[in-house]
Simulated scan of single mutants.
Amino acid sequence: MDDAPGRKPWEAFHPDGVIIFSDILTPLPAFGVPFDIEEVRGPVIQSPIRDEDALKTLHPIDLEKLNFVGESLNILRHEVGDKAAVLGFVGAPWTIATYIVEGGTTRTYTTIKSMCHTSPHVLETLLSHITEAITEYVVYQVKSGAHCIQIFDSWGGQLPPHMWERWSKPYIKQVVDAVRKKCPETPLVFYINGNGGLLERMKDTGVDVIGLDWTVDMADGRSRLGPEISVQGNVDPACLFSPLAALTDEIHRVVKCAGPRGHILNLGHGVLVGTPEEAVAHFFDVAKSFKFD
């Protein structure tokens, strides 16, 4: 989002954290899952992995194929200096697996959910492979300049809580535990879209920060998670289409509910297409106006 030709968001808004606009599927070709991006359908994987034979196409992640990510992080780290945190990000194993099994974006997740019962060994093998690849990818991003890593289990909220415990949480915890050993100083942020029914379970993964979407009341989320873990969010992205006075009120409400410590003010998800740029600027102006003792 540029407010003038050639002007980067960092230059326009000077946030406390910056991130490279990319995609959670970026590392897939580096471990054996090529994909295309189609204008209407989005990501398309021509050869979904749904049986043992298909698993043979997988291989250990080749980080040389992701040099452009490392180079971009290094450039960004140099550009912002010590004025902002550089954020890296990855998709959680379950969420990445949904694309690989379904062959792209889906609204029903019927194929992968069926695999939980019909081919659990295939799905377990796939998730384990993704977990190893994502762990290496996280460490690579940290070594390339990322101060912090955000883990997105975007479609974890599509699972009933007991199935999330079985098919997502253990693999996220493996990533977290492995990164803790190799990069102990790196904070980890964890987000699930539609996470209201999973907050307490998310806490058990061992991350430092949990992102709340806008469907969770900030005060309620704080109460459920407890004071020992930080939170991120959770202004509704649609509020940036409202009058600026209403946006100001909502930002103040969220901050008041979150309290003065352990809160990263943010939207409850990404900036929506068509969001007025003056609203984004206003969000940052209001955020920077807060004073805490």
Rank of each mutant, 00 (worst) to 15 (best):
M1S: 11
D2W: 08
D2A: 14
D3Q: 10
P5T: 09
K8P: 00
E11V: 02
A12R: 06
I20D: 00
D23I: 09
L25M: 13
T26L: 13
V33N: 08
P34S: 09
F35H: 11
P43V: 11
I45F: 02
P48I: 05
P48G: 05
D51A: 09
D51M: 09
L55A: 08
E64N: 13
K65D: 01
L66S: 04
N67L: 10
V69Y: 07
L73F: 13
N74H: 15
I75E: 14
L76W: 08
R77K: 15
H78Y: 08
E79W: 00
E79A: 10
E79L: 03
A84G: 06
A92D: 07
A92Y: 07
W94R: 03
I96W: 02
T98R: 07
Y99M: 04
I100L: 02
T106Q: 06
Y109E: 05
T110N: 14
T111G: 02
S114W: 09
H117Q: 13
H117W: 15
T118Q: 14
H121M: 12
L126W: 03
L127V: 03
S128T: 08
S128M: 03
H129D: 02
T131V: 05
T135M: 04
T135F: 04
T135G: 06
Y137W: 09
V139N: 09
V139R: 06
V139F: 10
K143D: 15
A146I: 14
I149P: 12
I151Q: 08
F152M: 11
D153Q: 09
S154G: 06
W155G: 05
G157P: 06
L159V: 05
P161Y: 02
W164M: 06
D177Q: 12
T186C: 15
P187K: 12
L188I: 15
N193E: 12
G197T: 08
K203W: 01
G206K: 12
G206T: 11
V207R: 10
I210S: 03
M218S: 04
A219V: 00
D220F: 08
R222N: 06
S223V: 00
S223I: 00
R224F: 04
L225E: 07
E228T: 13
F241V: 04
S242H: 07
P243Q: 02
P243L: 01
P243Y: 02
L244C: 03
A246Y: 01
L247M: 03
I251Y: 02
H252I: 01
R261Y: 04
I264E: 02
L265V: 00
G268M: 03
L272R: 13
P276N: 08
A279W: 08
A279R: 08
A279Y: 09
V286P: 00
K288A: 05
K291C: 05
D293I: 07
D293S: 13
D293N: 11
